[in-house]
């Protein structure tokens, strides 16, 4: 927190010289994404104050490096990339949490011959969502390793395409797809485990077994 405050003061001094037109453009084009950034930052840090600091730092860096922003490209995606980098620099290194994806996720996706049964958000999950409150879904999401949670937040919550996500988190598009595939399965399993702990029963297995017995 203290480190970020010093950084903000340092950046802030260089920003006050910017012409008013830059401020206006910045407010119109970049500030409307503050809520999306804050939501993403909160899910990364689990702390309202840290999230707010991260958002503030993101805007200060964006303003400072606005000449690097390519006109006509996605301002929201650019801001998310800055926030993601700031998060890695300020929090991830400090926490040293084992959350990086370091296995062959791409090949796991591409080599899967039969992904359908696990890649889909199947019926059970649909029913679980119907019966779960937001807090329970958030808890399942927040318990995921950050790299997996990140792709779900960027794709399913913020609506970025694979290509945009690839640019935000600096990984190939194929890896985005595979990571998303694994992340969704992970979330599905967490929700199912949670539902089962509450006594929810998955009858699909019983039904399949019954069908097999009938066939025999």
């Amino acid at each position: 927190m203290l480190e970020i405050s010093f950084l903000c003061i340092k950046i802030s001094k260089s920003l006050k010289k910017a012409p008013p037109a830059d401020h206006l453009r910045f407010e119109q084009e970049f500030l409307p994404h503050a809520e999306a950034l804050n939501t993403f930052a909160f899910h990364l840090t689990y702390n309202e104050d840290d999230a707010a600091d991260l958002v503030q730092e993101t805007y200060m860096k964006a303003f400072r490096f606005i000449d690097k922003f390519e006109e006509g490209t996605n301002a929201k995606a650019w801001l998310f990339k800055i926030l993601k980098n700031a998060y890695i620099n300020n929090y991830r290194k400090k926490n040293k949490r084992p959350m990086q994806v370091d296995y062959e996720e791409s090949s796991a996706y591409q080599d899967g011959d039969d992904q359908t049964h696990i890649s889909s958000y199947v019926d059970l999950r649909e029913e679980i969502f119907d019966n779960m409150m937001g807090d329970e879904v958030e808890a399942a999401l927040n318990s995921m390793p950050v790299d997996f949670k990140t792709v779900i937040l960027l794709c399913d919550i913020e609506g970025f395409s694979y290509e945009e996500i690839a640019k935000i988190i600096d990984i190939p598009v194929g890896t985005v797809r595979s990571r998303l595939f694994r992340a969704r399965n992970m979330l599905k399993e967490k929700l199912e485990d949670y539902a089962k702990s509450l006594g929810y029963k998955d009858y699909r297995g019983d039904k399949n077994q019954k069908n097999m017995n009938d066939d025999n």
Binding site: E35, G134, I152, I157
Partner: peptide
């Protein structure tokens, strides 16, 4: 999923 993930207004 989108409905159940809470937004955090600034």
């Amino acid at each position: 999923l989108k409905e159940r993930v809470q937004r955090h207004p600034v």
